[in-house]
């Protein structure tokens, strides 16, 4: 007898699935905002090459970029309690996502700063702006504009990566689907559903971030 598709488990358990979707969104929102903030700070330090800070940020970036996300997550959740920092699953997830995105976006934003024409610095200097004012008022927005598409992609990568946070018993989309799968054995339908939702979320986030970018970073030209 061929496999009988049944999407009933999805209708019947929409509550937990909806919770999963919202949790994934929430993790992404918090981790994304914190991560991009970290990225801006890291990029500024790397760009200005302030001694000591520069080495610290470089070490952080390399550490994150050369280790698996799952290990970073485990380290924060299972490792840090040994140092007295005990975090809930969702807190550890947000922290891991923020640190991860922060490292990648540090490099992306720094590249954006470095791609700006020298003339912008010189025009700012000629107007007596301090280096700090130049960065904040003149360079940051054009740099972010240049790399905004890459940053959007990175946020989406981190959103998809939040799937791994199911390992900490955080009921996000992946763990919601897995929970129901274990109960109903409807793997095909549930993971198809999860796939579709991740895809939709990715499209939605890209759309929203593009609007944010247009509103705050690339004002003016459509």
């Amino acid at each position: 007898m061929p496999y009988q598709f049944s999407f009933e488990p999805i209708y019947d358990n929409w509550g937990i699935l909806a919770e999963g979707v919202l949790t994934t969104l929430g993790l992404t929102l918090a981790g994304g905002a914190l991560g991009l903030g970290l990225g801006v700070l890291g990029a500024v330090v790397r760009f200005r090459r302030t001694p000591v800070q520069y080495q610290i940020v470089t070490a952080y970036v390399e550490m994150v970029r050369n280790t698996p996300f799952l290990i970073q997550l485990y380290f924060i959740f299972f490792g840090l309690p040994s140092l007295g920092l005990r975090l809930a699953g969702w807190q550890a997830s947000i922290l891991a996502m923020a640190l991860n995105l922060g490292a990648y976006s540090t490099e992306i934003i720094r590249a954006g700063l470095e791609s700006l024409p020298r003339g912008l610095f010189e025009a700012a200097a000629a107007l007596s702006l301090t280096p700090r004012q130049t960065l904040r008022l003149v360079l940051l927005k054009p740099a972010l504009k240049n790399v905004w598409p890459s940053l959007c992609s990175q946020v989406i990568i981190v959103m998809l990566g939040s799937s791994v946070c199911s390992q900490l018993a955080v009921v996000e989309l992946t763990s919601a689907a897995s929970l129901l799968q274990a109960r109903t054995f409807r793997a095909f339908e549930l993971y198809l559903f999860a796939t579709a939702v991740y895809l939709l979320l990715a499209v939605l986030i890209r759309f929203l971030l593009r609007r944010v970018g247009r509103r705050f970073i690339a004002r003016g030209r459509p």
Partner: peptide, 25 residues
């Protein structure tokens, strides 16, 4: 100083370009 490449700040309007330094400095 005025440069060969105008070096306007691309994310600001003409008016904001002029306002920036008097405000900040």
């Amino acid at each position: 100083m005025v440069f060969q490449q105008f070096n306007l700040f691309p994310h600001l309007t003409a008016g904001e370009n002029v306002m920036l330094a008097p405000r900040a400095v």
